[in-house]
Nucleic acid binder design. Sequence first.
RNA 1: GCCGCGUUCGUCUAGGGGUUUAGGACGCCGCCCUUUCACGGCGGUAACACGGGUUCAAAUCCCGUACGCGGUACCA
Length: 492
Amino acid sequence: MSDSVRVRFAPSPTGWLHIGGLRTALYNYLFARQHGGTFVLRIEDTDQSRYVEEAEQDIVESMRWVGLEVDEGPDKGGNVGPYRQSQRTDLYREHVDQLLASGHAYVAFDTAEEIDAMRERLKTPDNPSPKYDAATRMQMMNALTLDADEVQRRLDAGEEYVVRLKVEPGQTVRFDDLIRGPVAFETDTVDDQVLLKSDGFPTYHLANVVDDHAMQITHVIRGEEWLPSTPKHVLLYDAFGWPPPAFAHLPLIMSPTGGKLSKRNADKMRIPVSVKDYIAQGYEPEALVNFLALLGWNPGDERELFTLSELVEAYSIERTAHSGAQFDIDKLQWFNGQYVRELSPTEIAERARPGVEERVGPVDPAHLEAVAALMHERLTFAHNLADAAYFFQDPTTYDEQGLKKRWKDDSAGLMRAYADRLEADDTFTEESTEAVMRQLGEDEGAGFGRIIHPVRLATTGTTAGAGMFETLVLIGREATIRRLRRAADELG
RNA sequence: GCCGCGUUCGUCUAGGGGUUUAGGACGCCGCCCUUUCACGGCGGUAACACGGGUUCAAAUCCCGUACGCGGUACCA
């Protein structure tokens, strides 16, 4: 039991859950589920200055929206809680003391300004950002340079301090990344990372390691931006005498132009970055999950439509890509269309109603459903139904290109004639409306296209849409006749 | 600068020594279906970063270069 898989998604509540964060959560979830393991949510709220009140709830809601069910977490409980780091500060303090006692860490009194000054002073073209490390720490104010009495005196006086990891130079830290294979770092390139900040809160590195151990996490699956920090974490596990978990570093999601998918450049390309924006824009959660899963992973065969449970089945962390993937909104929308097509008319109507009613006022549910059924195949988003407002109200404008191409000198006359004949058609079915139109064409010696295209323009204002006669039936006899005559009058 | 990780069609990717005229998907283009537009079907366009090496044989292995990304905080 103790060796069963446990993974965690550990976001920082600093804003709306990012699309990249959701993908990290997804991969963790898939890994947990396919190993019959446990998926933990842990809130890493150790940065007081960046804390955003609503963020945690947004994380929970976003994950719920796509169906990533958490086994343990702040709103779920579990027996290794609490699941918010701000509620675990005593634990970190204890562990810091342990490291201090064992000589793996030391107290430092330097202020931010003093550290900046040191970096400024030691800066050379070859070394533009000197580290606080074995090479420089002996020039600073810390327990390694001050004598014990002085350190105690400062502590007693309540002077601010941080606790730093004492990184021994000249060593090589190695670990096997599940995705990338063996990775090695020289400790000479690792600085004496701050573990405990002067406000008493731990840094990410300390809290993360302590919690992953305390929560018995077996696999750390996270974004590639953490790869350079991993040697610090491995060093910490060593210092505590704990076996490190397995690590897997996921490739990053990048902007379509390369580079980071930041809020700013994503907005410019109309790519939502927050999960809440995907919800607001009417994306189907299944489509987002499917798209995200395939952005950096593939099953090895040519399938590409996967439900969440199919992904659990098919996923394998070894098949995860090694390089960053550019976000392709077109492909996401293609997925969305795929899933919208699987929706029932009732479901489409449900999703589209708010947008439709905002545009045309209250609509009859049965009518809306009939429209949904008819337009089904043509939708990328369920709410695209609102674009076909002509099912609910007379068109107010006519497509200009369409008029130019299809509206001829005889159109008005034909529209009036068709309207007149429809008056006499009591059944008004797909069959009858078509038969009437064909008869009209024969009698007037006009080609079918000469009539049907202007009719579409007159009744819908557009040149595109579902079958003409199905559309007419849904629009209704009275409205059809009214629209035909009005168009004839207005367009001449 | 330094450290790390990468590099196959425009994009997501398959392929990991001979099975490859390098496969699929999105996008784009064309045709079919349809007197509309989609959907669907069929077809087309388009890629192994570069240079060395290893080998009978390299997109595949090794080295270097270039380029990209990440990191280089008392942020995560």
